[in-house]
Design a protein around this nucleic acid. Structure first.
Lengths: 118, 118
DNA sequence: TTCAGTACATACCTGCAAGTAAGTATTCAG
DNA sequence: CTGAATACTTACTTGCAGGTATGTACTGAA
């Protein structure tokens, strides 16, 4: 019997992996192929990418569509349920961005890459 | 130079520790002493509690007030900045609770302890 | 003079998420 | 029949968050 003390624990299990939020952000803007994700996330290894995608799939957040073609082609997309996480991701992103700004103003040597919209 | 790809990474660094969200939830409802927190979080070790509190303090989320009394007395509380995380914590909690409910309906052997309000 | 209460620190250990590197399967193009 | 392209496995290694156990400092009560 698995026990949670707070709902947030379940949330962190699903979205708290090192790369999961990033993967979700990318899939939010549309279906992506495996190799595409890999190119969009420099630094992640293939093993870990597949692993995180499998976990997100298991948790019902992303879907996987395998075309029976050769060479292989697999696409990942947000499920209907996964899209409900949108609000969380957005809030966490904007709070984090604010936090980074504050720390920059305090002279910390940090940077937010890319221009996240909003 | 520390680099972030998305704001959410900074958020997870601050709120993503194993016990941090729980600590914040408890402090949301008022100032607490060290020992009090320890009693409210069965399972956490003293070392880790202190460690997480220090990190939250370093990140400006909680404040620490030390009374110069004997025996020692220390109190922790949410800072003005920390309170801005309220919305995140709430959303993550409610999304997680929904997730747990769904999984229970699917017959998974999990449970949400305590009766979180709302 | 020993113990209880409080809030730590310090040293050491462990498990698991993540990283590295190499192998598998399939088909078509040349 | 070799190599490229794609999407994976599998085996091994590493780093570090978190856990365990014990020590320190201070004072008043018994």
């Amino acid at each position: 019997m698995k026990k949670y003390r707070l709902g947030i624990e379940a949330t962190l299990e699903i979205l708290g992996g090192k790369w999961k939020a990033l993967i979700i952000c990318l899939l939010m803007s549309g279906t992506k192929r495996t190799g595409e994700l890999q190119r969009l996330i420099p630094g992640i290894s293939q093993k870990v990418l597949v692993q995180q995608l499998r976990e997100l799939e298991r948790d019902g957040v992303v879907g996987r569509h395998e075309y029976s073609e050769m060479p292989p082609k697999v696409e990942y997309y947000m499920t209907e349920y996964g899209v409900t996480a949108n609000k969380i991701i957005d809030i966490m992103c904007s709070w984090g961005r604010d936090n980074i700004k504050i720390r920059q103003q305090q002279g910390e040597d940090i940077e937010l890459l890319g221009k996240e919209q909003k």
